[in-house]
Design a protein around this nucleic acid. Sequence first.
DNA 1: AGGTGACATGTAAGAAGTGACATGTCAATG
DNA 2: CATTGACATGTCACTTCTTACATGTCACCT
Lengths: 181, 181
Amino acid sequence: MSLRIALLGLLAASGPASGYDLTKKFETSLAYVWQAGHSQIYPELAKMAADGLVSVEAEGTRGRKTYTITPEGEAELHQWMVERDPVVPLRSESALQAFMVPLLEPDEAIAVLERMRAGSQARLAQLEALRETKTAAARLAEAEGRHPDAFGRYALDLGIRHARTAVEWASDSIADIRRRT
Amino acid sequence: MSLRIALLGLLAASGPASGYDLTKKFETSLAYVWQAGHSQIYPELAKMAADGLVSVEAEGTRGRKTYTITPEGEAELHQWMVERDPVVPLRSESALQAFMVPLLEPDEAIAVLERMRAGSQARLAQLEALRETKTAAARLAEAEGRHPDAFGRYALDLGIRHARTAVEWASDSIADIRRRT
DNA sequence: AGGTGACATGTAAGAAGTGACATGTCAATG
DNA sequence: CATTGACATGTCACTTCTTACATGTCACCT
């Protein structure tokens, strides 16, 4: 279901696109909220076309198929956005690792937490760079009178805040372990 | 793989347990980092027994099977904990919803964000209550000379921080939308 | 004695996701 | 003109996860 919604969202926000385009967008912009490879995307688009949520607008060169969201697709997306309960069924390998940190000896635990901190810091840097790019593009758009692309803005902010939180948490946890030993 | 690790972690931290016990522990203590139902747990324990990571210690009444972690299981768990790179392959429906919030009209967007804030606030309250319970138990243990159970402590702290971050993010995003309209 | 509810373990169909394999086009570079 | 690399789409086997079905025990209450 979520993959379907993500694809509808991309089509709604950026207009008609091919499976290839959408795969790229998953890698570049959607990667930190949802992941999917082309082997999942192509069959899903075919199913969505069969269900009338998207239509094949044109078949271009190199077998390229351009998908467009239909009114039914827009309705489906809108309904999901508005009615969907914000369940948070977290399934995070990192959190699982964090959970079990107390099983380790203090020095090993600190080593693990330090790698986690480095990972979160790297992620933070990457997301902040992405935001830089986006705000620059938004400024340019505004200067030229076009309305800037806000798609993904709030999620990016959330990702940055989460990463910052994770860095602080790792530092504090390391300090906590040192204090206890 | 992760389900396996989670089960090994529970057996390592709390000692021998049945599939039923482990299912309960998934619900009560591990729920905010990993989820699994009994229909996934029972077959996995059987496979782990076949792989020598756990052994069936005893078959009690009502068909109860008590599993114990083996030295091989402990080694597997330890290796995963220490070597595992902190990849964060996030796949969050909430974040996906957040991503697409800009597609909605301002009033709808605010309604969605308000529900998200309420959800995060509820989660925060729940995790804080859990921490209260745990610290009370830890104080009692310390008073009695037993060493307190730290398993899950850091992950719980991380969960609380993430929930707090999400609440703040929702509030700020709502304010941002209001400012822009 | 009968009913309820926690205890206890399974199976099985189907959806979702992963990683590898397979095929072919087109443009640019050397 | 040959090779490289981005473009472009697909399948398949396998693992993981979800939901529902299925079965039976034991303690306690009325």
